[in-house]
Computed example of a mutant assay.
Amino acid sequence: MNTSLTLPATASAVNPTGFDVPLSVIRDIAVGAEDSTAPVACWGSTDLSRLAAQAVWEFAQRTGACSPEESAATVIQDLLTDLMHLCDQEGITSDLFGFRGLVDLADAHYANELEEGV
């Protein structure tokens, strides 16, 4: 992916709460990354966001929740819920280290990346 590219205009400037961001924003970001080859080189926040958008958009298409007017937050919430089911079913998480532990680790990684300017 090319880090010199910017993401399409996001809804954050229009709606700072984020919960009314339409899925079309995710679709537009994901479509912009379709021409990249695998494995994807992630050099910054834009690349990481595009990769995540592709995963969310694929999930939305597979579940039929791909209406551009659908809330991006709702689709992401559904994906997280399904990831919880997967982790529970396959023993990826346990009573000692639950899904919240994965989220806490991801949050720490995200904070580190922000500090590093990623």
Rank of each mutant, 00 (worst) to 15 (best):
A30E: 01
T74N: 11
P22Q: 06
G18N: 08
T10M: 10
N15V: 07
M84R: 13
E113R: 15
R100H: 06
G18K: 09
S49V: 08
V14R: 11
V118H: 12
A72Q: 02
N112I: 01
G64A: 03
S67A: 15
S36E: 15
G117A: 03
T63M: 06
E90T: 13
A13D: 14
E58V: 09
A30Y: 02
I92V: 12
L96A: 08
T81V: 06
L96M: 05
G44S: 12
T17Y: 09
T10N: 07
T63K: 15
M1G: 06
V103Y: 05
P8V: 07
G117C: 03
A33G: 07
E115L: 12
R100T: 08
V21T: 15
A33E: 03
S24W: 01
P22M: 05
C66W: 02
I92A: 07
P22L: 04
F59K: 02
G32F: 01
V40L: 15
L5R: 14
S36Q: 14
D20G: 12
G101W: 01
T3H: 09
A41C: 09
G91W: 02
T63A: 04
D82V: 01
D104M: 10
N2W: 03
A33K: 02
Q61K: 14
A108T: 09
I26T: 15
C42I: 15
T93Y: 00
T81W: 03
E69P: 00
P39R: 06
R50Q: 11
L96Y: 05
G32M: 01
A13V: 07
I92G: 06
L105M: 12
V103G: 01
I92Q: 06
S24N: 08
A38D: 13
T3M: 10
A41H: 11
A11N: 14
